[in-house]
């Protein structure tokens, strides 16, 4: 009744909370050339779990910003300009906070839920697995 597949269908969160599900979704996104959205989503979760007093936190925040937001990649293109400015300013002013990526992550998550996740559930890669 609560098979992995049933859980994957429930929500994006359930899919990403399952090792096989996350792996298969990642493979799907690689084919769709937007795997950065998923890596960014996980990076935001990882950042939120970090000890904000650890000097590493600022370096990780900068690395996430540089890799996904500052460029013209798939994540950057999906984020609203004010959201990008908020992250950029937080880093510039060194106002590092556990929640500083939350708005950006929420926007990317909404895009994934509405697009990639729906496509995934009808994709060949998913149906073959089923």
């Amino acid at each position: 009744p609560d098979s992995p597949l049933a859980r994957w269908n429930k929500s994006l969160h359930s899919l990403l909370g399952d090792q096989d599900g996350a792996h298969l979704f990642r493979t799907f996104l690689e084919r769709e050339k937007c795997v950065d959205t998923l890596d960014f989503w996980f990076a935001c979760n990882g950042f939120r779990q970090m000890d904000i007093k650890d000097p590493k936190a600022l370096r990780v925040a900068k690395a996430i910003h540089k890799r996904y937001i500052e460029n013209c990649g798939v994540v950057s293109k999906q984020l609203k300009p004010p959201t990008k400015v908020f992250v950029r300013d937080s880093i510039k002013k060194q106002l590092i906070d556990s929640t500083m990526f939350d708005p950006a992550q929420a926007e990317i998550q909404l895009m994934m839920e509405d697009n990639a996740y729906q496509m995934f559930l009808t994709s060949d890669i998913y149906l073959e697995y089923v």
């Binding site: 909370g17 090792q19 890596d39 590493k56």
Partner: peptide, 20 residues
């Protein structure tokens, strides 16, 4: 000292489900 890429990868991996 860890490189930026290593730190980012470590951060992503730490959030992946069901680490073994």
């Amino acid at each position: 000292i860890d490189s930026e890429d290593d730190l980012l990868q470590e951060c992503i991996t730490s959030a992946m489900p069901n680490k073994k």
